[in-house]
Design a protein around this nucleic acid. Structure first.
Lengths: 256, 256
DNA sequence: CGCGATTTGTGCACGCGTTCACAAGCGCCT
DNA sequence: AGGCGCTTGTGAACGCGTGCACAAATCGCG
């Protein structure tokens, strides 16, 4: 960290920049910062302080500053961060300067909704193709795209430059789909099926399981209920928390 | 940890058990274990080793054993874990013994899919009511439930014993909906809207943002591309990784 | 031109989570 | 009955992430 090295500004001379290897936790927060920055830009803000951006993104300011410091020094002391510059920088680091093509496999209940979700398009992605294994669904048009049979994946993947695969099939089909995606060179997969995928090294899989999120909430509900029901339990250990109820770190009371 | 205290077995005498306060990371994995256990039960397994269950859940065995040890000793050395017992135990800890009522607010694109998603019902939840603010959508029937106007929330929340609120509205409406949910006593919220919610202490919010997941994948794509494109960069720092590409810890190559 | 107010960038300490490695315990086979 | 192999449960070390607190830097004003 001795060298003060800019990891590559997007607007600068085309010299390709060694991407810094950011901590995974930081990467996971950058999109949230980006969303907050877009909001700020739309409401006419030219600069933001770390405090302001942090509260807009739901984190504390120290964390935000440390996160941003990992991409270089793009703030001005005494002033704050230039919103436009920071947007460009984060979009560059996240690789959003090119609109990556997304293939969505499985056009059932959830897949249908994902295909119509405009949040993808508005945040840097292009849903480039829809696939399903059910011949009854092939040919259907959703949001201007025709559903194709999964067997067409190899050809379409090349034509449409698919970079990311989204799996929204039932669990039993998910592994086979993942294998097919990997086979055509996809190295990033977003999996909505409730199952573990096994993929070769070098392929990234992120999983989103809606039921799991509810079950986590259920645990906390259960816990809150058992605490309030038992101010002091028979035997022992429940240290009565002074401040109030225990809460997760997911997101919490950000005083307006 | 000196006392060997069973935190309360579900089948035992009704004595209510002080719920152990599990590490948050453990709580987040329990649902995954539960899903894997259900799979094992359906395929006729009576017992599982930590190794077996771990690979089915996509984690390593040490982590799994430590996680399970937090709920008590429900394994048998030399044998493994009793599948049925462990299912009961995890379901109890997660509070899934009662089917909690879920209110879904926002029946647009995504909300529609969530309302029809049978994964909720099959994993311990009951979608008890659908709401929307758009009069044009009120009255529509989805999956046997009629969409009601959000103003009916207070009455329905009591009638249906709503425990969890799911927000699937556009971002600008989300905060108002969250406030309404909190006002009727909901203390657990699952938020699909791309925005930060502010809620009073004691209310849990979990956020799922589909675009963020893609953006995280995009970062890794970008990074992989920049690495393979530049075996040795001009100046410096890129230590050529020996094993291969860098990968996230999300999920990785579980040798079949 | 210098000073004070303000805000970034970061060294440091702390706590949580993960992983290793092994002792304790259980069942089976002889 | 005794020993052996297997598996759990856990103490201990390590590493990452978080938050504090402050020095460094910049701007505006007198």
């Amino acid at each position: 960290m001795s060298q003060h090295r800019h990891p590559g500004a997007p607007g600068h001379a085309g010299a390709v920049p060694a991407l810094p290897d950011l901590p995974e936790a930081t990467v996971a927060r950058l999109p949230e910062y980006l969303r907050a920055l877009h909001n700020l830009a739309e409401t006419g803000h030219e600069t933001v302080s770390s405090e302001g951006l942090a509260s807009a993104a739901g984190v504390n300011s120290a964390k935000l500053r440390k996160d941003l410091s990992h991409l270089g020094s793009y703030g001005t002391r005494g002033v704050g961060y230039d919103v436009g510059l920071l947007v460009d920088q984060i979009e560059y680091v996240l690789g959003l300067t090119q609109r990556r093509g997304v293939a969505l496999v499985g056009v059932g209940n959830l897949g249908h909704a994902l295909a119509g979700y405009d949040g993808f398009a508005s945040r840097g992605f292009r849903i480039a193709a829809l696939f399903d294994a059910d011949p009854g669904r092939v040919g259907e048009e959703i949001n201007g795209l025709v559903v194709r049979h999964i067997d067409e994946l190899p050809r379409v993947a090349v034509e449409e430059a698919i970079a990311i695969g989204v799996i929204a099939t039932p669990a039993p089909a998910a592994q086979a789909v993942a294998d097919q995606l990997v086979a055509v060179g996809v190295t990033s997969i977003l999996n909505f099926a409730p199952c573990v995928l096994s993929v070769p090294e070098g392929v990234d899989v992120r999983k989103v399981d809606l039921a799991i999120e509810l079950q986590i909430l259920s645990f906390h509900e259960h816990r809150k209920a058992s605490l309030t029901a038992l101010p002091a339990t028979g035997g022992s250990a429940l240290t009565a928390l002074p401040g109030g109820l225990a809460v997760t770190d997911t997101q919490e009371a950000i005083g307006t």
